[in-house]
Simulated assay, not measured.
Amino acid sequence: MARIRANGVELEYETMGNPGDPAVLLIMGFAFQMTRWPEAFRRSLAEAGFHVIWFDNRDIGLSAEMGGLATYTLNDLAADAAGLLDALGIARAHIVGMSMGGMIAQLIALDHPRKVDKLVAMMTSSGAPNLPPPTQEALAALTAMPMQRTPEAIADIAVKAQHAIGSAPNLRNSAEVIRQNAIDDFRRSDRPFGVIRQFTAIQAQPRWHERLGSITRPTLVLHGADDPLVRPAAGEDIARRIPGARFKAFPGWGHDLADAMSETLANEITAFLKA
């Protein structure tokens, strides 16, 4: 892994593939570290002929921690991502974002359009205020906090959360894998106040749904048909608002990056990017 200054913020990032190939920037979602991009997914994109770049958003993982009273919006996170491309000397890239990362990806296309080749938004929302809300169980899972910040307590929360918002049992990662991923991430970095600041950034973000009609880059929207956190209607709304955008939902897929979905998603994205 490496660290670079982008938009005035130190960001931890990693790459895979040939730097001479077209770049694909992966943007992670709320509270998750860049380690949650499945290796099989990243490797599939690299082997398909792309230079894959992924990173920790500010306040998470090994990127800069912003401090107790710091405030920012998703616009700032979009500027971070665009700044990362600038710092790496990449004029433009395919942008792939999941969940909050998908919101950031839309804002890059709106605010930094010259940095975007094609746009892929996964399990995310247009930000429109009239969309169906999460189920109560999914919202509770998203905001659950452990009684103690120990690896075991964090892992217990992660398992419960993924059972509440994740894919169908035949697709979802096993409890053992979910538990180990949570423990590994906790040992890598624990930023509870960073998580709070990211949540505040989502809430403070000025709505952008009415601007989506100005996006001219080819866009693919992928969603889980069974996503209880960001409902499929949220993804459909993105596709309706961006001219020419295509929407595809996958039965059984929830709000997770289950290992069993890696090949399916990588193949779908590769076909779109190479079209």
Rank of each mutant, 00 (worst) to 15 (best):
H112W: 05
T270P: 03
E176K: 09
K248E: 14
D226P: 08
M34Y: 03
I178P: 01
L107P: 01
A82S: 11
D184N: 15
V24G: 05
D86C: 01
L220A: 05
L229I: 06
S125G: 12
A121C: 15
A258W: 00
D156T: 14
I90M: 03
N75T: 11
N130C: 04
G254K: 11
Q180F: 05
A258N: 01
A93N: 07
L45M: 08
M98G: 12
R191A: 02
K115N: 06
I178L: 06
A81M: 09
D111C: 06
S99K: 14
Q148Y: 15
V52Y: 01
R211T: 02
W54G: 00
A64N: 09
W208I: 06
E210Y: 05
R197Q: 03
Y72I: 08
V230M: 13
V120N: 00
A140Q: 11
G89S: 04
A64F: 10
A70Q: 04
A81W: 12
L119A: 03
I165P: 14
M100Q: 13
F272H: 02
V120H: 00
D21R: 12
A168K: 02
Q148T: 10
D185A: 14
A91F: 01
N75L: 13
I53W: 11
P232W: 03
I4T: 12
I104F: 12
I183H: 07
L84D: 04
D76W: 01
D156E: 15
R197H: 12
P129S: 11
G49I: 10
D86F: 01
A266T: 01
P134K: 09
V96T: 05
P251T: 10
G68R: 15
V221M: 00
S63K: 13
R188D: 06
F50C: 02
M103S: 13
L110G: 01
E65S: 09
T150A: 10
F250A: 11
F247C: 02
A271R: 10
A140T: 13
E47S: 12
V195H: 10
D59C: 09
I242A: 03
F55Y: 15
A105P: 11
K160R: 14
E39F: 13
L84R: 08
A31K: 10
A158V: 00
D59P: 08
E152L: 07
A93C: 11
A87N: 11
L171C: 08
L62S: 08
G244C: 08
G29Q: 04
Q136S: 06
R58Y: 05
A182I: 13
T15I: 07
I90P: 08
L139T: 02
G67C: 06
L25R: 11
A158K: 01
N57T: 04
L265T: 04
L131H: 10
A153K: 09
E236P: 05
A275H: 07
D185H: 05
G166F: 00
A31L: 02
S44C: 04
I242H: 01
V120C: 03
Y13E: 02
E10A: 11
R5L: 15
M66H: 06
L74Y: 07
D21F: 09
M66L: 12
T216E: 10
A161K: 14
A70R: 09
K115D: 02
L139Y: 07
N18K: 13
A260V: 00
P232H: 08
D256L: 04
A182P: 04
R197P: 03
R114G: 09
L222A: 07
S214H: 07
G127K: 00
L139N: 03
A87S: 15
